[in-house]
Design a protein around this nucleic acid. Structure first.
Length: 893
RNA sequence: GCCGUCUUAGCUCAGUGGUAGAGCACUCGCUUCACACGCGAUAGGUCACAAGUUCAAAUCUUGUAGACGGCACCA
């Protein structure tokens, strides 16, 4: 069989995924071992409006590597896919579509029709990301795909809500919340981001004191809120103002008189020391209002315009227009003291960047104190979840928990899980799983369901167990028994609070289980400019484009090569490295197949006695690599794993092993080609979790691969690398002696090549090589004469106790050998002298460092004996090498 | 303001107490019968700075500077 000259990723990418999926390899049921341990991962459900970005590609790669690795180890493996319904995002898309296509608003078509349109939208566009995941090679069980608004998952939401309400963990209350006037919904604290504005203004307003000609100046960044002021507060110990406490202010632009109150909250040092109090529009003012029993005057509509309470001059004006008008009217009244430039950070809606308005509103909340304690307890008693990397996430996670505030879960949207609460005409609330149940509770009164829906993250918080069949009515399933707790959660640090923490708490609360043991926190893939990729910066890199340009496998293994948790600047050149790697493996396989018509993969071929050195060496390296690889994966050190594979394939297997075996292969040596194919087959298995397409493509082409190589749990007759055993590595197969001997041969070849290159001797010229060495190594060099001649491009090898060569020779030393190459007529004595001097100076530098260390009595006394001994040995060796080179140098002068 | 992370070769990054590493780029040489997406050989670093601990520090401690992240505050 002959392979194409270069690897074309497209061919492999189009050939295998469908078969894998259709044959059920991604399903845990493929595992027929009744005693198999389970391994499970639930995907962080991508937003149904989304398309694949680099963060997904990174996380999916890691999840797929883990899943494929564990599957090959014989675990009953489940990677569960799905999407979330993304309340605000979908709603916004459908609203926009409605406006564009029909010039209608959601109110025009009504709730029911609007929700129907959302489903239509979801059916039409919601599969983008799942299709892209197929391209990625993600080995997820599509038969278990879940959506947060599936029937069972929705039932889970209702049941959880009711239980939490019944137990007093959910309440409805009037609080200051974050309001987005564009989306017209409340947001949780986590959905609000800070944006620093350098061009902010601090406006100083003079408030006339009743019964006095004096004014009291207050400063504000939001002048329009003065229309809702119901007090002015000063610090009671502030000498300037304390006499004013109890007096009143005649609030300009309104007909109201408001009290001056004393409150410790006010910082006498800041601003004017007097604070206008707007309890319905500011969280701190709300607190002051509570303490002094102040009126809560709401002056804004839900779209950010002023309402009737703001007065006839302002009603209907947008908040920012009202702000300007308030300032200019104060100015006209002579009550504007000054306006200062002021750097301010403003809360903005995470999604639409609209400035969020703190506003008094009645909403549903989850009480977080007991949940928080559960999560903290899990961390302190069991160390769960275990974060990778542990620092700094564990600390940030616990610090966040300790300061946790209640969670606003209602959203003024239509798309989502409608809150299972009903009201009678008197406003009494009935929380129930169904309308019928609510009616029963209400004794048949006329009821109206709460119009709001729940935060999308509320349903995402149930993901670890709702996806496995738990819905509150059904609480036990085979999947729950098998797969909960899940083994690891792979996610970005941006949703540790938003999602990970809440899932930990809700899973514990409702199943008394851990959601997962480990959390792998990935870093952020930054744009070329070193900033996070984003549409507004236009610095994004589309993973699909990378797949097209470099191949899926190259992209995957590049992403896996990023140190866990580290941010990395995007750089095409690095993917190119791995595209080249894929091609290298392709060609190594191509070569192995070229002269192997009769050979096929045969594990017993590696057990034969008296194998040549190169074979004993590569088997040792293979096993060492496999052992280290498994260790790295256990620790979630994917970059270490990639580096091990890269160096095994490229350096050990291609640069040395294949090169050393070329003569045998070209001569059609059946035993030799059998061993090469067998080694390659095992190596491909080690690589498979990282580069699934390439490895499957090649593995199937290797003669002798079949389902006979399957792990015992997979008794299907299908041949696929996916179901073979992941090489565990065998310590007993590590052959230290072979590694030392091979190392000696490699060193000699390198010195010979160095001489050729440094002496500018054409590759076409063959010379003779003389080696002097101890008798042990003499045997090694003699046995491997053919290899040394081939890779050193030499004519003849002479191995002896001493070098017996003419003066016109180039010389070199290694740890185990002295080397000489007679170069009659070819040698340039100046060059050779310079080369020798360079070698001497390098070695001398090292020796003087060692001498300094060894002459330090403290070091010799206190350092571990074996360290000291090792340095002594090295020093002796260096002395010998330096002496040899200096002799040569003297001989040349 | 509090907490945390980062600063290593031209670039992008590994490296958690014992001779500084990789890939790419650079230099030199190769149409060597798997691969020029390749092969061979070099060169390139006071590991941000300062002090400390230690026989020994890129690695541990403290401080400084710069970059970044999270949280809080923001009248």
């Amino acid at each position: 069989m002959e392979l194409a000259k270069a690897y074309d990723p497209k061919v492999a990418e189009e050939s295998h995924y469908k078969r894998w999926e259709e044959h059920g390899y991604f399903r845990p049921e493929i595992n027929q071992d009744p005693d198999a341990k389970a391994y499970s991962i639930v995907i962080p459900p991508p937003n149904v409006t989304g398309s694949l970005h680099m963060g997904h590609a990174l996380q999916h790669t890691i999840m797929d590597v883990l899943t494929r690795w564990k599957r090959m180890q014989g675990y009953k493996t489940l990677w569960l896919p799905g999407t979330d319904h993304a309340g605000i995002s979908v709603q916004r898309k459908v609203v926009e579509q409605l406006r564009k296509e029909e010039n209608k608003s959601p109110l025009d078509i009504g709730r029911e029709e609007f929700i129907r349109r959302c489903w239509v939208w979801k059916e039409q566009y919601g599969d983008t990301i799942t299709e892209q995941m197929r391209r990625e090679g993600a080995s997820v069980d599509w038969t278990r795909h879940r959506f947060t608004m599936d029937e069972s998952l929705s039932l889970a939401v209702r049941n959880v809500f009711c239980t939490l309400f019944d137990e007093g963990w959910i309440y409805r209350g009037l609080r200051i919340v974050n309001w987005c006037p564009k989306d017209k919904t409340v947001l949780s604290d986590l959905e609000v981001k800070e944006e620093t504005k350098k061009d902010g203004k601090l406006t100083y307003l003079k408030y006339p004191i009743v019964g006095s000609s004096q004014t009291l100046t207050v400063a504000t960044t939001r002048p329009e809120t003065m229309l809702g002021d119901t007090a002015v507060a000063v610090n009671p110990s502030d000498e300037r103002y304390k006499d004013l406490i109890g007096k009143s202010i005649a609030l300009p632009l309104t007909s109201r008189e408001i009290p001056i109150v004393g409150d410790e909250y006010v910082d006498a040092e800041f601003g004017t020391g007097a604070v206008k109090v707007t309890p319905a529009h500011d969280p701190n003012d709300y607190q002051i209002g509570q303490r002094h029993d102040l009126e809560q005057l709401l002056i804004m509509n839900d779209d950010g315009t002023m309402n009737a309470a703001a007065g006839a001059d302002f009603e209907g004006l947008d908040r920012f227009a009202a702000r300007e008008k308030v300032v200019s009217m104060f100015d006209e009244l002579g009550l504007l003291e000054k306006v200062e430039d002021y750097e301010i950070s403003l809360p903005v809606c995470e999604r639409c960047k609209t400035i969020v308005e703190p506003i008094l509103s009645e909403q549903w909340f989850v009480k977080m104190d007991e949940m928080r304690d559960m999560a903290l307890d899990l961390m302190s008693t069991e160390g769960v979840p275990h974060f990778s990397p542990q620092v700094p996430h564990e600390k940030v996670y616990t610090a966040w928990l300790e300061n946790l505030k209640d969670w606003t879960i209602s959203r003024q949207l239509w798309w989502g899980h409608q809150i299972p609460a009903w009201y009678d005409d008197e406003g009494n609330v009935y929380v129930a799983r169904t309308e019928a149940e609510a009616l029963e509770k209400a004794g048949g009164k006329r009821l109206r369901q709460d119009q709001d829906v729940l935060d999308t993250w509320f349903s995402s918080g149930l993901w670890a167990f709702s996806t496995l069949g738990w819905n509150g009515t059904v609480t036990e399933t085979d999947d729950l028994r098998s797969f909960l707790p899940t083994d690891v959660l792979v996610t970005g640090r941006d949703i540790i609070f938003l999602w990970v923490s809440r899932m930990i708490m809700l899973t514990k609360k409702f199943t008394d289980q851990k959601a997962f043991e480990d959390v792998v926190v990935t870093g952020t893939v930054l744009g070329k400019d070193g900033k996070p990729m984003s549409k507004s910066r236009n610095n994004g890199v589309d993973p699909i484009e990378m797949f097209d340009k470099f191949g899926v496998d190259a992209t995957r293994i590049y992403l896996a090569s990023i140190a866990t948790g580290a941010d990395i600047k995007w750089n095409d050149l690095l993917i190119e490295t791995y595209r080249n790697f894929a091609n290298k493996i392709w060609n190594a396989t191509r070569f192995s197949l070229l002269n192997s018509e009769a050979a096929k993969v045969d594990p017993s071929s590696l057990m034969a006695e008296d194998l040549p050195l190169a074979d004993r060496w590569i088997i040792s390296r293979l096993n060492r690599t496999a052992i280290d690889l498994n260790k790295a994966l256990v620790r979630y050190e994917f970059h270490t794993a990639v580096s091990l594979l890269y160096h095994f394939f490229w350096d050990d297997f291609c640069d040395w092993y294949i090169e050393l075996k070329k003569d045998e292969i070209n001569a059609g040596d059946l035993a030799a080609t059998t061993r090469i194919l067998t080694i390659l087959e095992i190596a491909l298995r080690m690589l498979h979790p990282f580069m699934p397409y390439l490895t499957e493509e090649l593995w199937l082409k290797l003669p002798g691969t079949s389902s006979a190589l399957n792990a015992p749990a997979y008794s299907t007759s299908d041949a696929t690398i996916m179901l073979t055993t992941f090489p565990p590595g065998d310590v007993n197969a590590i052959d230290e002696r072979a590694e030392i001997e091979m190392g000696a041969v490699i060193e000699v070849i390198k010195r010979v090549r160095n001489i050729r290159s440094e002496m500018s001797i054409s590759p076409s010229i063959k010379f003779n090589v003389h080696i002097a060495a101890d008798s042990d190594f003499q045997d090694v060099f003699r046995t491997n004469e053919a290899q040394i001649l081939k890779l050193g491009r030499a004519e003849r090898l002479t191995v002896a106790d001493d070098l017996d060569v003419p003066q016109a020779s180039a010389k070199a030393v290694t740890s185990d050998a002295r080397i000489a190459i007679p170069l009659e007529g070819l040698i340039d004595f100046d060059k050779e002298r310079e080369r020798l001097r360079n070698s001497v100076s390098k070695l001398s530098e090292e020796r003087s460092r060692l001498d300094a260390q060894l002459s330090n009595a403290n070091f010799v006394e206190r350092a571990p004996a074996e360290k000291v001994e090792a340095l002594r040995e090295r020093a002796t060796e260096l002395s010998g090498q330096i002496a040899t080179l200096e002799e040569n140098l003297t001989a040349l002068t």
